[in-house]
Computed example of a mutant assay.
Amino acid sequence: MKKMRAARLVEPQKMVCEDANFYEPVKGQVVVKNHMAAICGSDLHQVFFTRRGPKDFPGLPGWPGHEGVGEVIESHDENVKVGERVLTIPGGGFQRGFADYQTLPSSWCLQLPDYDGPEEDLLMAQQFGTTIFALRRGNMDFIGKTVAILGQGSAGMFFAWLAKRFGAEKVIVSDLSLARLEQSASFGADISVLGDPDGKGIREAVLDSSSGRGADIVIEAVGRKETIKQAIDIAGYRSNVVFFGLPDTNRDIPFNYAQFFMKQIQMYGVVDAQGEEDLKSFYTALDWIARREIDVTKMVSHRLPLESIDQALVLAHERDEDALKVTLTF
């Protein structure tokens, strides 16, 4: 059986790069030789706040990587040709992108458009596509509204850009990283606030900017209990709250139900963008990047080889060295 290098979660908070068996494709699947993969905030939750028991270790080779670009080297689908360069957006059961090769259904491979910039830019379309999907699901009116976004990882920055594109009057963002906040303005943020455990800073900024009304739309892009509670706290009357951040726990998270009820908040969670029937959100993301409607050239701050997977994850998690988006090369 063929071998490949792959990252594996061998214990909570620890991944290593080792030789692993190659996943043999079946009908309808393709094999992609990875050129590059990106670390997502949800990967960090899976690794550092894992809900796995002892019997679940080690994890599957390549898991939980799901943001990648590469070249098709074997195809069992007549509609996908060997040699095509693709963005890989694998869903459940196939999120194994932290490896030399991915074997996945062809439907989760999107051919890259013509683009004279680096392939790394197009890699950003995976995360970008999930944020487009999240807002399409809500069908919200952004025109003239005050929008608050908790978290300024790549997803939070994409939400800021989308809010402005869709007509928001004021976009207020918060994060614990000064480096990320410094980037936020280039993605549309009008006000950037350094986060705090009680959410005092973001609350004051939202109330000051909305004449005390609160935010019309709140997007939680962290997944921590603190920011989940803050999202409801800063939301205004008859507002909308979007929960995008992958929860870091399976336990109940208490929140002020009376506050939610009296404000008449509408809220929803978003996951599984790869289940979108036509994958239009991801195609739109690729198109906007390729046509340079959005500038993603400064989003990636660190590039490490696959062998340094553990270092790369710690870097992204701890935000050391002013880390923004961290990618892996093969």
Rank of each mutant, 00 (worst) to 15 (best):
R5S: 01
A7W: 03
V10I: 15
C17E: 14
N21L: 11
N21Y: 04
F22I: 00
P25F: 08
K27R: 13
Q29G: 07
Q29L: 08
K33W: 02
K33A: 09
H35Y: 11
H35G: 11
I39P: 08
C40H: 00
G41N: 10
G41S: 05
L44G: 09
Q46K: 14
Q46D: 06
V47R: 09
F49D: 14
G53K: 13
F57G: 07
F57M: 06
W63F: 15
V72M: 00
E78V: 05
E78P: 06
N79G: 13
N79E: 06
K81S: 14
G83W: 02
E84Q: 07
R85S: 14
R85P: 05
T88N: 10
I89W: 09
I89M: 08
I89H: 15
G91Q: 08
F94T: 07
G97M: 07
G97E: 04
A99M: 04
Y101E: 01
T103H: 01
L104W: 01
L104S: 05
S107N: 09
W108E: 15
P113L: 05
D114N: 15
D116Y: 04
D116E: 13
E120M: 14
A125R: 04
I132G: 09
I132W: 05
A134C: 05
G138K: 09
G138A: 14
N139Q: 13
F142W: 12
F142S: 08
I143T: 13
T146K: 10
T146N: 14
T146R: 09
I149W: 02
I149V: 10
G153E: 02
F159G: 05
F159N: 10
F159T: 07
L162K: 14
K164Q: 11
R165E: 13
R165H: 09
D175P: 00
L176C: 01
L178Q: 13
L181V: 09
A185C: 07
F187A: 04
A189I: 03
D190G: 11
L194H: 11
L194S: 12
D196R: 09
P197I: 06
P197W: 03
G199H: 08
I202Q: 11
I202L: 11
R203H: 13
A205T: 05
A205L: 02
L207S: 10
L207Y: 02
D208R: 06
S209T: 06
S209Q: 04
R213V: 03
G214C: 09
D216E: 11
E220G: 06
V222P: 00
K225S: 15
I228H: 08
K229E: 15
I234Q: 08
R238N: 15
N240Q: 15
N240T: 13
G245Q: 02
G245I: 00
G245S: 08
N250V: 14
F255M: 12
N256M: 05
N256H: 13
Y257M: 14
F260T: 10
F260L: 14
M262I: 11
Q264C: 07
Q266W: 00
Y268A: 14
G269M: 04
V271Q: 12
E277Q: 14
L279N: 07
L279F: 05
K280S: 15
K280I: 03
S281M: 12
S281T: 10
F282V: 09
I289Q: 12
A290E: 07
E293A: 00
E293S: 06
H302C: 05
R303W: 04
D310V: 01
D310G: 00
L315K: 08
E318V: 04
D320N: 07
E321K: 15
E321I: 03
D322M: 15
A323N: 08
L324A: 02
